[in-house]
């Protein structure tokens, strides 16, 4: 286990190496929240409620969901794997006595830890500046479910991106897969607009997909909504993790022999 902790620590250190990136990331977080405040402020000027949300509960939802979606950085995994398989430097991971998937999971954990600190600070500052009456879940049980769901959801995203990355062994080019994944995630995670604004039938189908449980449901749970979905949500996202792990093991076994290590 200590090897994976050290991988995480190493990537946390790499995040801290560039001061400019740290600064711009914080500014970007702040701009997003500012934009949301202006946008929802205009919408709520004429009405008290939109789809069951008040101005403050909507902003609370937005701050939590944008905080969670900014923690989800695993897209870099598939890009890095595909790049390294194609230029031959994926060999660097293959010769180390460590599980490659474990390495990328630990890498992601290190990166998430970095963003967690800064995003949390930015969220607190903005709740304070805009005097948002922050709506937050009261039940400890639901809070724990939401927290666990976030962790499992982020792990699922690592698995998914790792899986898409190693598909390069078979298809060489995976940009189409990545495009489909990104569009689907934008639609299903509800990171921009709450899913309650969609027709009920559409949401029902979205609930079959894992993305619903990555940022959207945890955000709703943390703002005190959808409590009845907390436990089933945990089962669904865990089920998806098992399915994804089976796919990863199968794909690696089947296609790792195709790796030719050519490139630079």
């Amino acid at each position: 286990m200590s090897k994976y902790i050290e991988v995480g620590r190493t990537y946390l250190k790499t995040q801290l190496a560039w001061r400019g990136d740290v600064l711009f990331h914080m500014l970007f977080t702040v701009t997003k929240i500012l934009f949301a405040c202006l946008l929802w402020g205009l919408i709520f000027e004429e009405r008290e409620m939109v789809s069951g949300f008040t101005y403050h509960s909507m902003l609370s939802y937005y701050i939590i969901s944008s905080f969670l979606s900014q923690l989800e950085k695993s897209g870099g995994i598939s890009e890095e794997i595909t790049y390294k398989i194609r230029n031959g430097s994926f060999s660097n991971y293959m010769v180390l006595p460590i599980s490659i998937e474990g390495y990328f999971t630990a890498m992601e954990a290190g990166i998430v830890l970095f963003y967690l600190g800064f995003d949390l600070a930015a969220a607190f500052i903005w709740v304070f500046i805009f005097r948002i009456e922050f709506v937050f879940v009261q039940s400890g049980f639901i809070f724990c479910c939401a927290l666990l769901m976030v962790i499992i959801g982020l792990f699922f995203m690592v698995q998914l991106n790792y899986f898409l990355g190693i598909l390069t062994l078979k298809y060489e080019e995976i940009s189409t897969f990545l495009m489909i994944k990104n569009n689907l995630i934008s639609l299903v995670t509800g990171s921009i607009v709450p899913l309650t604004l969609f027709p009920e039938a559409v949401v029902r189908y979205m609930k079959l997909l894992p993305f619903y449980y990555v940022t959207y449901l945890p955000s709703m749970l943390l703002t005190g909504r959808c409590r009845q979905e907390a436990v089933t949500g945990l089962f669904v996202i865990s089920g998806w993790c098992i399915v994804m792990q089976i796919l990863i093991v199968y794909t690696w076994k089947k296609y790792s022999r195709k790796y030719d290590g050519v490139g630079i």
């Binding site: 200590s2 991988v7 190496a17 031959g88």
Partner: peptide, 21 residues
């Protein structure tokens, strides 16, 4: 032509990682 070192970090950081691995 394929480096194992982390370019943003020091050599000590990479060695520490290898120690654990």
């Amino acid at each position: 032509q394929k480096s194992q070192l982390f370019f943003e970090l020091t050599a000590n950081d990479t060695l520490r990682l290898f120690k654990e691995i």
